[in-house]
Design a protein around this nucleic acid. Structure first.
Lengths: 104, 104
DNA sequence: GCGTGTGGTCATATTAATCTGACTTATTGT
DNA sequence: ACAATAAGTCAGATTAATATGACCACACGC
């Protein structure tokens, strides 16, 4: 892509990047479920029946990379992986709350 | 599209729809410019040089349809059209502010 | 060593968002 | 009458997001 549009990529609005990160098709729902406790790949697939593996996988990776979710490997009996809200993730909850307030 | 996915369309998270509306490529920047006063189609094209007519047009229409911008036809000398934040639009500003706060 | 559960990846479609360039309609200036 | 400005629309191309189905690796129970 010949490094074109190098200017178009720089953030105009600081909120833009975060907004885009949060706006994925299942991100809001993942956050919602994560507020009730740690979530797992398979539990999300169950709880969001219209979602697919790929999308859940991408969403979890993006949210983790941006520090909103924390990934934990649980070595207990059925060894598995849990994702929970990081401190930054918890902060984001207030944004969702505010958005909900603007609707009703 | 044979009315399929009627279940997939129903909102899971109430914030989801609003989040998606706000996450368009230039929406945040449009809001930012609109806080400084009424904006116009042509002024947005100038002030967001990387944007194109179509995208600005679609963004303005969507934001107006969802009641975040108010469209005014100004009959003064160079007859033109202005878009300004509606009361609901002003409320949304606080969401952007909060998002910005989560970054720094 | 075989099947099951968990947590994915990969290549490939399909769908949605954005871009491009040509065109339009109405108003105004000369 | 002619050109310019303002605010778009439209068809078609490109790019990004999401979906589908096949596949993979590891741990565990049997």
């Amino acid at each position: 892509m010949t490094t074109r549009n190098s200017t178009a990529n720089q953030e105009t609005c600081p909120a833009q990047a975060l907004l885009k990160l949060l706006s994925g098709k299942y991100k809001a729902e993942i956050f919602r479920l994560a507020t009730a406790g740690p979530v797992r790949f398979s539990s999300l697939l169950r709880d969001i029946p219209e979602a697919n593996r790929q999308s859940i996988s991408v969403a979890l990776r993006e949210l983790e990379e941006h520090g909103l979710l924390k990934k934990d490997i649980i070595k207990n009996k059925p060894l598995h992986i849990e994702y929970q809200l990081s401190p930054r993730g918890v902060e984001v909850i207030s944004v969702f709350k505010q958005l909900e307030g603007l609707i009703g």
